[in-house]
Design a protein around this nucleic acid. Structure first.
Lengths: 166, 166
DNA sequence: ATAGCTGCAAATGTTTTGCAGCCCG
DNA sequence: CGGGCTGCAAAACATTTGCAGCTAT
């Protein structure tokens, strides 16, 4: 029975380790713990939030290590980064997740995912028509989620947050 | 002849001044000069680039004033801000310009504009289906422009710049 | 007059980096 | 062993802010 006892790896660990080996990098305890912590849930988190979560889980990792590890994971492709213009960047693991876009609620800062094939196709078409080679794309919708639509506080707060988004 | 000699205002100045008055703010020399400098050309610029340009034009304006003035113009709506994940934010004046999206060349950092009504409509549709209220949206295509497609240097540089974009 | 501006410098907040010591392969 | 890690603290950035003096209205 080829089954390891404490392993719940759903593939990302193998991918990451293979990537590290390929690059001549090392799969250290810190990296293993970060990987597991990050893949334990599927959400969008900032470096700061991750650091706090690690602290709560008693995983010791300095700020520097967290940033450096995130960079390696980005390069590996199991993570993507999002910038919602909130100052800090958001990260999200993507292994096993198809590409998708985001709806960012400016009221509660919650993030919803969606995917629309028609939009995907149109983006390719636009890039092709412009003579460019599309390498990545990012579509973000900013607005008020169902909950915040009826919250006057959120509506008020949202005013300044949206005037200037391109 | 109702024509002022040194005035080439195409409307943005009136809009800005009206906005300032409405808000109980002042149309100072600094603001006037910044407005004119910004509207002299239609491009995408960072705060830093604007400061340099002002310096070259012998327009004295401190960093603080530039940032503060940009904020007022954003609130006024004659300017929008873009975040291409390059660290600094880009600004673009929009008075008289319809909303459009951007193609960002990761090779030479050039920016091309485009607008696709079908995508615009689909974004509204997506937001509506999700029960949210769409306040703003941002679509960015990252890739290599025609010129950079054949530049091995750009292609190389682009590798790290795109792996991680969501 | 007076509320709002401006410049300067200092503070902020996020992310990066230099360095000395540690550790995986 | 040795090249790659790690933590710490300092640096680097873009952006914001406190304050004292200046100025439009």
């Amino acid at each position: 029975m080829p089954m390891k006892s404490d392993s719940h790896t759903s593939g990302e660990e193998e991918v990451f380790e293979a990537y590290l080996r390929r690059q001549g990098l090392k799969y250290t305890p810190a990296r293993r713990q970060l990987l597991r912590s990050i893949f334990a849930v599927h959400d969008h988190f900032t470096a700061e939030q991750l650091i706090e979560r690690l602290r709560a889980e008693n995983v010791p990792a300095s700020k520097a290590t967290v940033y450096r590890t995130l960079a390696v994971m980005l390069a590996c492709g199991i993570l993507v980064m999002h910038d919602f213009g909130e100052g800090a960047r958001y990260y999200e693991h993507t292994f096993g997740h198809a590409h998708h876009d985001h709806f960012f609620c400016v009221g509660c800062k919650s993030i919803k995912e969606f995917r629309d094939e028609r939009i995907e196709a149109l983006q390719e078409e636009v890039a092709r028509k412009m003579g460019g080679e599309l390498l990545a794309h990012s579509l973000k919708l900013y607005g008020l989620c169902t909950g915040c639509r009826n919250d006057p506080t959120a509506r008020e707060r949202s005013r300044s947050a949206t005037t200037h988004r391109g």
